[in-house]
Design a protein around this nucleic acid. Structure first.
Lengths: 333, 333
DNA sequence: CGAATTCATCGACGCGCGTCGATAATGATG
DNA sequence: CATCATTATCGACGCGCGTCGATGAATTCG
């Protein structure tokens, strides 16, 4: 392994000069630094992470932990989250790894902490009363919970603001003149949060239940006109079923958006644009959210354990105006 | 942070005695070790990974890298692989992390190597002529390719032996008296490897094409008796379609296994046992394979870079004798 | 031109731990 | 009891790097 000493010898300078040339924390003359950099290049020198972490104090590494990534088929959204964190963290000169779950309980966290090579932890897929959260808090390790926070969560978190989704969807529909809206979900009962927001917009809700499959959606399309004559718009919580609905609407004599407008919630862009007409959605930018989370994590690590700054970020959705939304009874915008 | 010095002071021993008490690399009296362990417990001491790696020389860490984990919806089999590696590596006292892909090329590997905190790399989802392989080889980092090796792969690898799957399936069918067998796959052409092995067993093959969906499978079941009168057995390469086939067979007047025996290939245990009758399969133990890979990785790291031992492991499949295989025309075993 | 100031560079130290050689304590042997 | 082998424990060193105080060179100013 090439070390700092090798570079120093080759460049004809002291070891500390090598350090300062690379870190820039003290002025080094142009000429000297170039000699050092040339030597670094020539020998392919890489600073040793263990040594740097040991000498420098804080480990420049962020660890991602998720409980469900390998236990259940992950959704592709997780890819955007991981990707965002990686880049957010890297932007600040830190690195990131994923800590694999071995046992599914907080013993995984214990082992991680024991290594003491990670400066902070980003938890994903956290459930209510997650033991890992309590352990991290007790051990005073900087951590952020990304997604699925409990109500009034008292630790650092970055999350989607689900309320904003429904606010955006219903106010958009209200603006377009829709007053009776179907909520497509997996069960008969409608989420109280949705009810509340619809009520605030003076919108009457009807529950549309379906399995989240292509077939489920197209079955609904077949009977829709007859079964729900007054409904002019649908808010869909089912990403796959609504694709089936839209794709088979025309052959069922249903004109989207003239007969029924549609806004999809929590859909991937690929899904929403795979249909004809393409589905309007309220979407989150998972990548940007995660990137911000990564940046926040680094800042929290650098702030140190004594910092009392709390991170609370809620990201609101964006209305993606595609081809399934129009004024009541009208063809397109 | 509590350090070795704190333990030494509390236990009233020297720092090296603390080290040896924990590592067991030199004899320490029962009495002394207990005092040390008590102090460790009391102060919650964790040895610092960076310091240990620095002092000990070789980093006791294995890194998993995969190219497709977050770019495409991963199959659940990946969970078993990760799990196996984690446990195989841990068994040898090492740790493991997953290195997330930021750019999708070998720059991710470069960054990893630069950190110099990982003793070895396990590559998953490798494609032909993967740049990462060449880079790791050039940098002399111990690495193993897990799965999908090119023919005649010249580096360390652990993989499934796909040939064994078909050998097992066809010899089983031959033993049960089947001579005309359908191959259920996504296209009309039959894999040459399969053809070769069937021919060696004097078995006549017929291609059964279907989409890999429940509906595709049940559609096939409906027309099967008429369309393929001579076929008494099926080897299925489609995990989902065959579930649909078996589940709707009875209602199509098709008795499994009396009318047609079935062996599924590359199915998850959950899928194979979700039907009635449960599907016999040839399966790989992905977990055990990965665990072995993890153990091998640690051994390679400990052997050092000068070791010239090459790791080549092929894992053969297991016939899982469930309820869809019987002698020609018979009911059950 | 000498003193004060700035700038570039150096040497030394310590982070926490693994490990080697040395020492003290213990037991065995003649 | 003296001698030697064995065992348990200690002290010291070094891994590679970040950083602080100090030194010498270059520059400025009175």
């Amino acid at each position: 392994m090439t070390t700092r000493a090798d570079i120093a010898k080759l460049a004809g300078v002291s070891e500390s000069t090598v350090s300062y040339s690379l870190s820039g924390k003290r002025p080094i003359s142009e000429k000297t630094r170039n000699r050092v950099l040339a030597a670094v290049e020539q020998l392919g020198y890489k600073s040793n992470y263990a040594a740097a972490a040991l000498a420098g104090g804080l480990p420049r590494m962020v660890t991602m932990m998720t409980s469900n990534l390998f236990l259940a088929p992950p959704s592709r959204i997780d890819g955007a989250l991981v990707d965002g964190i990686v880049h957010g963290v890297r932007e600040r000169g830190f690195h990131s790894v994923i800590w694999p779950i071995a046992n599914g309980d907080d013993s995984d966290v214990k082992v991680l902490l024991q290594l003491n090579f990670s400066g902070g932890v980003i938890l994903m897929g956290v459930t209510d009363n997650d033991q890992r959260v309590h352990l991290l808090n007790r051990e005073k390790v900087p951590f952020i919970v990304l997604g699925r926070t409990d109500v009034g969560f008292k630790y650092n978190f970055v999350d989607r603001d689900f309320e904003s989704v429904y606010k955006i969807a219903f106010s958009k529909f209200k603006e377009l003149g829709h007053t009776q809206i179907g909520v497509l979900s997996g069960n008969d009962a409608i989420d109280p949060l949705i009810k509340k927001i619809a009520a605030a917009n003076k919108i009457k809700l009807v529950s549309l239940k379906s399995k989240n499959t292509i077939d489920g959606g197209s079955a609904l399309a077949k009977t829709f006109k007859q079964s729900y004559p007054g409904i002019t718009a649908i808010v869909s919580l089912l990403d796959i079923a609504i694709v089936g609905f839209v794709n088979s609407a025309k052959s069922c004599g249903l004109d989207v958006p003239r007969d029924v407008s549609i806004i999809g919630v929590n859909m991937l862009e690929e899904q929403a644009t795979s249909t004809s007409p393409q589905i309007s959605t309220v979407a989150f930018d998972a990548y940007e959210m995660a990137k911000s989370c990564g940046r926040n994590m680094v800042e929290a690590i650098e702030a140190g354990k004594n910092s009392k700054k709390k991170i609370s970020e809620l990201w609101i959705g964006d209305f993606m105006d595609r081809e399934t939304t129009s004024r009541v009874g009208e063809d397109s915008k």
